[in-house]
């Protein structure tokens, strides 16, 4: 059952924002729509919510075609990037709003609001107004408002992007835990590949309105369908060596750096090194190519010093230089 996009397109004026998207999301799955800004991921989410019309194609929720079903009858919950808390209502009223408009009786409302407030540890904030809350607290309230009833799916539009880095990692973990507890289908939009990798059961990578690859995080990372996916996922990014017939891609952790020459190793010079604490990124020049390698934290090399590189050949990726499509045949997990 779950959610299905069938050949969905969206045009604004003449511009195509989402182009022939087909996606099947299984019940209970955590799917992340990943891509750079302007790739159509938010529009996709908004079409599912009914906040944008569909130009062509069909959207199904649990087998029901919802193209013409108004937002309020789609039975979804959404967390907005801005949180969109109602500024004139207290936190209790905010969280209780979806229940109120669905005509739940008072006792049930109180019971449910208290339950989610306890779950998200925001009981002490209930009588306040949104403007009296910190960013992280608002985030929790927005989540609470989404989970207070049991919708068919949660839609999340970059919900963590307004938090500072530390809080973002913490909330990321809590989100994952929460989804595990609730088991509700979740569709999550982000441009942050780390969020996609850590949260998703499957990731849909999008670019310029087109779906590039829809697979598990491991397969997205290990078997990227094309050069765009390979480059977008992973930090630091995959290295590419351009050739006439083929473009070779290799991830920084699959390049070993040695200070001494050894068999089969290629000579390179160190452009600069960046010590990250737990590891070192080594920026290298090989001829006209620039490469990044991941080395242990204790790796030391002077700028312009000579080093030798060994590539893990079984981890190399091959791409068509024109189309960018992957030419690698690899066993997927």
């Amino acid at each position: 059952m779950g959610i299905e996009f069938r050949n969905v397109s969206k045009h604004f004026g003449g511009a195509s924002v989402v182009d022939d998207l087909s996606l099947e999301i299984r019940d209970g799955e955590f799917v992340v729509l990943l891509g750079p800004s302007g790739c159509g991921k938010t529009t996709t989410l908004r079409m599912l919510a009914g906040l944008e019309t569909v130009s062509s194609g069909d959207i199904f929720i649990e087998g029901e075609r919802v193209n013409d079903v108004p937002t309020q009858h789609r039975d979804l919950a959404m967390v907005f990037q801005s949180y969109a808390l109602y500024p004139h209502m207290t936190i209790v009223e905010n969280i209780g709003y979806p229940l109120r408009v669905r005509k739940f009786d008072k006792a049930q409302r109180v019971e449910r609001v208290n339950r989610v407030a306890a779950m998200l540890e925001i009981e002490s904030l209930l009588e306040r107004k949104p403007r009296q809350l910190s960013g992280g607290e608002r985030q929790r309230v927005a989540l609470a408002r989404a989970i207070v009833r049991e919708p068919r799916a949660y839609l999340m539009d970059e919900p963590l992007s307004n938090l500072d880095a530390r809080l973002r990692v913490q909330m990321r973990g809590e989100l994952k835990r929460l989804q595990h507890q609730l088991g509700t289908t979740t569709i999550y939009v982000t441009h942050d590949q780390a969020e996609a990798m850590t949260l998703a059961s499957r990731v849909a990578v999008m670019r310029k309105g087109r779906l590039q690859q829809f697979d598990t995080p491991m397969n997205i990372y290990n078997c990227p369908a094309n050069r765009f996916v390979a480059e977008f996922v992973g930090s630091p990014s995959m290295n590419f060596i351009e050739g006439e017939q083929v473009t070779i891609g290799i991830r920084p952790e699959h390049i070993q750096v040695f200070s001494e020459p050894r068999d089969g190793a290629i000579a390179a010079s160190v452009y600069v090194t960046e010590l990250m604490g737990n590891e070192t990124f080594v920026f290298l020049s090989v001829g006209t190519n620039r490469l990044i390698a991941r080395a242990p934290a204790d790796f030391r090399a002077e700028v312009e010093s000579k080093v030798w590189l060994q590539f893990a050949e079984d981890k190399m990726h091959y791409f068509d230089p024109k189309s960018g499509e992957s030419l690698t045949q690899r066993h997927k997990l």
Binding site: A49, L51, T71, Q72, L76, F80, Y97, R145
Partner: peptide
């Protein structure tokens, strides 16, 4: 901000309800 009304719609309110309540 439109977000507020859109949130109200997703939360299950009608257009008119969102107008009146939010």
């Amino acid at each position: 901000p439109r977000d507020l009304e859109e949130a109200a719609l997703v939360d299950g309110d009608s257009r008119l309800g969102a107008l009146v309540r939010v």
